[in-house]
Every structure is written in C-alpha cells, then in structure tokens.
Computed example of a mutant assay.
Amino acid sequence: MALRIHFTGEDLARTWIAPEPDAMWETMLSLYRLRRRERTVVFGEWKTSALARMPAATRMLATLVPARGYSVDFLTPRAESGSVEAGTEALRRTTGERLRVDLTELAWRHPGTRLPGWAGRLAEGRPEELNAIVSTVEDYYRACLAPHWSRIRAQIDQERGRRARLLTAGGWQAVFSTLHPSARWSFPTLELAYPAEHDIHLSGRGLVLQPSFFCRQTPITFRDPGLPPILVYPIEHDLGWAHRPATDRRRPLADLLGTTRAQVLETLGRGDFTTTELARLLAIPRSTASRQVTTLREAGLVNSHRLGQAVLHTISELGVALLNGRRSGLIA
C-alpha cells in the first residue's frame, strides 16, 4: 500500500519546508506514542514522564485519536504558525460541517468502538464541546510537551537545516528521495509507504513538508485530499533528548575550554550546524552561540563556510583531535 502525491511544475514552486514544529501535529502524534505499546529508546523516558503528568481529561483526545487507524483531521488545522496558541485558535474556528464529516468518518473507521455522548454533541457543532476539546489540548500540551518543547524544536531545526542543504546541493530530487526509506521520486509523483492506498493531486496548491518529532514509521497526511496539502514525516532523534545527564561528563574539556564552548565543540563533533541550530540545540542565546563559535574558530577548532544565505560550522581536524584526546583520557 502506498501514498502517492502528484505534482505539477507549479506545485514544485509552491513546495516548502515548515519553519518550526507544529504543536497540533505533535500533540496528536504524541498521543499515538503514549497509547501504543512500543519498546523504543527514543520515547521511553518521555512516556514515563508524560503518563505521570497527563491530565485526566486527555481521555477526550484519546477518543479522537485511537491507538491505531484514522484520527480526526480537524485536530491538526492549518494555522498562522506552529505554536499551540495559533493551533488552538484555528481549532476553535472549526466549522460544524468539518466536525460532522470527521466524526462520522471516525465512527465508520472504528465500528467496534462506541463514541461517547459528547462526541455526538460535538458532531452537531455544539460550541461548548469544541471549547472543551480546545482546553484539553492546551492542558495536555502544557503538561506533556511544553517541558520538552525547546529540545523538540532544536531537533526540528537540525532537520530543517539538513533538508535545506540537500535542496541546495541536489534540488527536490535529493530532498524527496531521502524523506523516508520507502520514498520514491519520479516526477511528477512522490510515492511512500502508507497504511492504505491514498492519492493526493496537488493541482497547483503546492505541498508543506512538516518534519515531526513524534511521527514514527511512515509519513502521515490528511485523509481528506481536499484539505491543504501537507506531508508530516519522521526525523532522526538524539537518543538522550528527554533527559539531561546527572553528572557532567564534559568536565575535563569544560575546564580547558569553558562549559559552553565545550558543549558547542561536542555538538559540532556530531555534525555540521548553523549558529541558530547550535543555539536551539544547546538552549542558549544566538549571540552566545555566535561568540563561542568565533572563539573556537580563532583557536583553529572550528571552520565556518557560507552555504546559500546560511553560515555552516564544522569541527576542524584539530577539534576532532581534541575531542578524541578527551575520550581517550589524554585530557584529565
């Protein structure tokens, strides 16, 4: 089974990579992660924390987001930005027709599940029920996602930087063909593994590529092909994203360089990043990241070069040698 997205030349000109994580998609997809019995290093620690914090009212969202299969499209509306404030405001404006169509589809797709009474009232467009859903999303986000949002955003920034570099080096062919192991791009069609046969004809509308932290296994999109086209796809993860080490393993290097510079150098040891990406990954001001990179560059530990409108920072051979010396115990 496959998802096929059909492009025109006009669609390629209108295709873009979302500038930030989308709180509504991350809310919906994180609920999948919580409800599925998955053994994964990436989300295990977060799941333990989130289950302990999760508001009781989240069961309303669980109704709309079953553990498997179709979830209502209206929970992930197109908004002016990816913030939870913009997303919930767009959710509050959901039309009665959209509510009715999606909840009818939910009942049809999950015939063995009886929807609660409030779902019927929501399908009728009752504003009090929609307001309750909005409040539940806000409470869930605040309890389970907000404490981790800066690190989630930093990893999305890292993925966006990677996509931008691929686009610069190899065009849309390089971007599309590496979105997912199943991706097959042959103009005018992008084909990906999907739980069902599904075709989207963009017809000049373009496509939003939305990197997602909690998306897993296959990319996802709206069931209704008439909605604004979006492809939400999984990113690669830093396995330790959900916690900070109890002890500072970088202490010897930090004594030599200073804590922040040591963190910047070790981060660049994992890959190439812009100043903005470094700031997000390390949760420091951009000005601080820029100052520390400048110092490391002047010491010959980092190289910087321009790629398009961005400046990319790369660890130098001397920087690698310094990190290897720390790891081998030469720096003590």
Rank of each mutant, 00 (worst) to 15 (best):
M24G: 02
Q309S: 15
S150R: 15
E128V: 15
E298G: 03
T15F: 05
T274M: 07
L278S: 00
M24Q: 06
T275I: 12
L265Q: 00
L31N: 08
A332D: 14
P229Y: 09
T295R: 13
L256W: 13
G171M: 09
A23E: 02
T178D: 10
R93A: 09
G269C: 01
G44P: 01
G170S: 06
R205I: 01
T218L: 14
V175G: 02
L29G: 01
T136Q: 09
R250E: 03
R250H: 05
W172K: 10
L122I: 15
R163D: 05
R93F: 00
Q292S: 08
P234G: 09
P66R: 09
G161H: 05
R270G: 07
L301P: 08
T276V: 14
L29H: 02
T168R: 15
M28G: 03
E128S: 15
A18R: 13
A67W: 12
T8G: 13
L192Y: 03
R121D: 08
E85K: 12
R216Q: 07
S316W: 08
S203T: 04
R249F: 08
V72C: 12
G69Y: 04
T274V: 11
R33V: 15
L281W: 04
I5Q: 07
G161Y: 03
A310H: 12
E89S: 13
S49C: 09
P55Q: 02
V208R: 14
G325I: 05
W172L: 13
E26F: 01
I235D: 04
R59W: 03
K47G: 05
L91E: 03
R291M: 01
I235C: 01
D102C: 00
A246W: 06
E105L: 15
W108D: 13
E45Q: 12
L64D: 12
A107C: 01
A254M: 05
L278T: 02
L12T: 11
L301E: 05
R160F: 05
L239G: 07
A246D: 10
L115T: 09
A90Y: 02
